[in-house]
Design a binder for these strands. Sequence first.
DNA 1: TTAATATTTTTCCAAATGGTCAAAAATTAG
DNA 2: CTAATTTTTGACCATTTGGAAAAATATTAA
Lengths: 209, 209
Amino acid sequence: MKKNSNYPNTRIQRQKRLQILEAALKIFSTHGYRGSTLDKIALEARISKPNLLYYYKSKQEIHKELINGLMQKWLAPLREMKKNGEPIAELRSYIRRKIEMARDFPRESRLFNNEITQGAPHIKDLLEGELKELVEEKAKIISAWMEEGKLRKVDAYHLIFSIWATTQHYADFDVQVCAILGEEKSKKRFDEAAKFLEQLYIGGLKPEK
Amino acid sequence: MKKNSNYPNTRIQRQKRLQILEAALKIFSTHGYRGSTLDKIALEARISKPNLLYYYKSKQEIHKELINGLMQKWLAPLREMKKNGEPIAELRSYIRRKIEMARDFPRESRLFNNEITQGAPHIKDLLEGELKELVEEKAKIISAWMEEGKLRKVDAYHLIFSIWATTQHYADFDVQVCAILGEEKSKKRFDEAAKFLEQLYIGGLKPEK
DNA sequence: TTAATATTTTTCCAAATGGTCAAAAATTAG
DNA sequence: CTAATTTTTGACCATTTGGAAAAATATTAA
């Protein structure tokens, strides 16, 4: 007889699931949810469609697991912004980490973009719950820094939004960025972006004296 | 006998086409290209599907016309940035106009976002041609301002990107913005955003003395 | 080896979807 | 009014797609 069968979690299972998620991430981030078909995902994962449905009961289930896994990864940099750190240094390193994520995980960014752009049907509660609380907490920290005169006084929420926007832009709008920059300048786009953003934010946020 | 029949352009035609484009804009911007069906568009436009196809030969054709019409509207603010203006004032007004567009035409922004995020399959040549040239021209103007000491020296291309990113964020990520800001603060989001961006950019871009 | 279990494939289906076509209805020129 | 023309509709079709069922194959515990 075999062991537990209700929810087997063999090596094979774990590996196949990863394989599927990897393929699904690629397809979903390229074509959006509706534009992605199980056939394409299965092909990409090098398995048959029914086999894919053996590991995930439906298209939605794959998408859901992707989005959920994504959120944690995505918010990690913000979570690491510590109250006790030196404000300018904390912001600088937050921005740098976000740009690195745009460079290293563009597919995750696009997947997220797609979800939000279409009204966040699957993660609205997450946004209004966990995310909202996290941002509130961090906005408070930033505001406190401003009160102490460590940063120029601006709206902390919109500051966070702007950092999200500027960094994720390099993942989501990569085609446009590259089209405009041309071949040579494109190669250096992430380094240039990091440098520019640092100048923009740090210069702009330094308290006036 | 009736007049010209090759390409009639009666009142009725013009009105119905507008009606269809309006409906298509709503549907496409909400569900993306693949997520939008001719049925939904026809329903939204209050006509039958075959009737819709009488005015536009295919789904692609509707989309194409939307995207093309959009680009001109979208780039108008950048086009208006004039070499002879006062640099800080020109930037300020550019940012303000972009924020107003995010507020007033979020559907257009989302449509564009969707197109780019999926690799810009329909407008790649536009990006590499018209858009690239326009940005090159404006980047030169901005760089010249910097050389004259009117602005802090930063990469002009990335400056433009960051303005696009920060402003369009308020259209594309509106759900997220509102979820985080909560009901009250959401009402003022565009005004606050405009104020914040002005502080960020103008403060950050002023030449040091 | 064998029997139980896990995995994969083959076949199939119903619904959704982009699009066609011919006929009906409405509009307009003369 | 009448005839030509434009607009609208109803019926239909081929393809795509998410998914189900069951049989076939592989794996593993004993």
